[in-house]
Each structure stands twice: as C-alpha cells, then as structure tokens.
Design a protein around this nucleic acid. Sequence first.
DNA 1: ATAATAAAAGATAAAACTATCTTTATTATA
DNA 2: TATAATAAAGATAGTTTTATCTTTTATTAT
Lengths: 145, 145
Amino acid sequence: MFSKACEYGIRAVIYIWSQNSKGKKIGIKDICKEIDSPEFFTAKILQALARKGIISSAKGPNGGFYIEKEQEKLTLLELVEAIDGNQIFEGCGLGLKVCSEVNPCPIHDQFKSIRDQLKVMLHSTSIRDLAADLEKGTVFLSRFN
Amino acid sequence: MFSKACEYGIRAVIYIWSQNSKGKKIGIKDICKEIDSPEFFTAKILQALARKGIISSAKGPNGGFYIEKEQEKLTLLELVEAIDGNQIFEGCGLGLKVCSEVNPCPIHDQFKSIRDQLKVMLHSTSIRDLAADLEKGTVFLSRFN
DNA sequence: ATAATAAAAGATAAAACTATCTTTATTATA
DNA sequence: TATAATAAAGATAGTTTTATCTTTTATTAT
C-alpha cells in the first residue's frame, strides 16, 4: 500500500511526536533504533519532511528532530501525501492515463469507493492521537517491546 | 496500490475474457495493442497466470490465451493475489514484522478496516462481470476508445 | 577559538521492478 | 514433412526504490 519510505516516515514521525510531548528533540540514531529502520535512508526521509515544514530539525549538540506548535494539526493524509505523493489517491486503479466518470476503467467505481474510504480514514487520523496511544503503551512501533 | 504487472495483468485478463465469450483464443500482440501495454512484459505475466491455471494458453497457429470452463469463477481477489501476492492483504500497514491484535501498530485497526473492505470488494467482483461491461461498451481499457 | 555533535548533502551501490531482445519449443496446416 | 505461427523461456538492460558510506555545514558547549 505505502512505500518503504512512507512506512519508515510514519513510524519515525509518530515516535518523534511521542517524545516531543515531553519537550525533547530526538536524534536520528535514537529514532532508527527505536523504530528499527535503516538510519541514512530514514534520515533522508525526515530531512525532506523538515524541508516541507512537516517536522522541524536542529543541528549541533542536543539537536535532532522535533515538532513545533504550528505542526500540531498534522494528519496521516498530509504525511502520506508528503512522502508518497497523491498517486494512490488520484491515479486510476488499472493504471490508465485516461480514466474518469465518462470514460471509466472496469473497476473505476469500486476502486473509487475504497480510495475515498482510505482518504477519509487518513484524514481523520491525527498523528497527535497516534503518538498518545504510543505513549500509553497500547500500540507499538517495533517488534522489540 | 497495485504493481504495474498487476495493472497489466488485470487489464489483459479482462480483455481475454471479453473476447473469449466469443469463443476466440487471442494472441499476445492483439492483447497488448488493445490494452496499450508492453508486449514481452505482459507476456511474462500471462505466462505465469497460465502456469497457475488462472487462464489457459495454446501455442502454434491460431493459438493464444483463452479461458476454460473451470476458470469461469475467477474473482479480482484471486487474480491480484496471483500476481502481487497477499502482502497487501496480510502485511502490516507500517511494515512491522510483528503486528497483531495483541501487539498492534498505531494504525492497526484503521488499516485493517480499509483492507477488509478492499478484500470484500475484490472478492465480490468477478472478472466475468467486468468483461461483460467491457463488451457492452460502458467501460474501457485504454485511452483509445 | 576550538572541539564535539548532529543534521544536511552528495556519492555510490544493492535490490527490486519494469521492459526489451533473442532463442527455443510446440502446434496447426499446407 | 516442411513451414509458419505462436507461446515459453532465457538473457540482457533500463529505471526506480531502497540502502549505505562519505563529506560538508551549522550549532553548541567548553
């Protein structure tokens, strides 16, 4: 469904959020150890997210990735779109260049329905809430609990 | 959502079905021209499907791909699974190796819901019906109508 | 100032996916 | 039996994604 980059990105951002509520910046090494992801690859994903203003980062001692007030309304939809683009929400399910209501592919309606539900789900899921669940200990980010 | 191979495969199989109802075998060149897909790549996908018994094929003059009676109950679910595997239906949305009810990832429930709906949709969509729609001319397989 | 720290950026490589080309095997029919 | 048609199989190549390694830049603390 999502790319590896997106999976790592979501896991990392949820973890950053869960730590940030404690007012901490958190380094890439810690993040990757916690979410069990490849360090440099994950770093590039987070750097891109920082450039887009979805998270923040600081260099130097005690630096790391963190969240600022303005970023607090982040939803899964925005995060997924920032990493994987909108192809999954917009593209034809069978890869047709032209596919629309008046010129539909064979699974146009069925696919649209699923996709709309996915979009609603992602839009109504806030990173803030997911991070809160993580802190509560009801959900996990790696097989090492 | 689906791989390119899966997109081509679905389009090709729907087209084969739509022609087969007219009692014809259909060659790879015709298929690829009709669905606008790369010939040798599509051939390999169909060959694999034939090996799995999802479609049939015949070599030699007037040969090609076709459908047999026993294959008539094919659903999208079986087709997608044969090409892309079951990762999309079984794997964790965030790529965790261990993710279950007792050890859920942060989006376990939300993702499960979407995935179950996708599965139901694919299971309740028969290739036969999609091919019928194609014959009726209410849906299309390429931008060249 | 200097050294240490950590993200950012650049370069390279490995793996997977997509695509194409060539050769082989099989089958119908002339 | 020879030939042509067609799928199957094998080999190669291009592209994208994923992953790693190295160097640079910015920041902090001493």
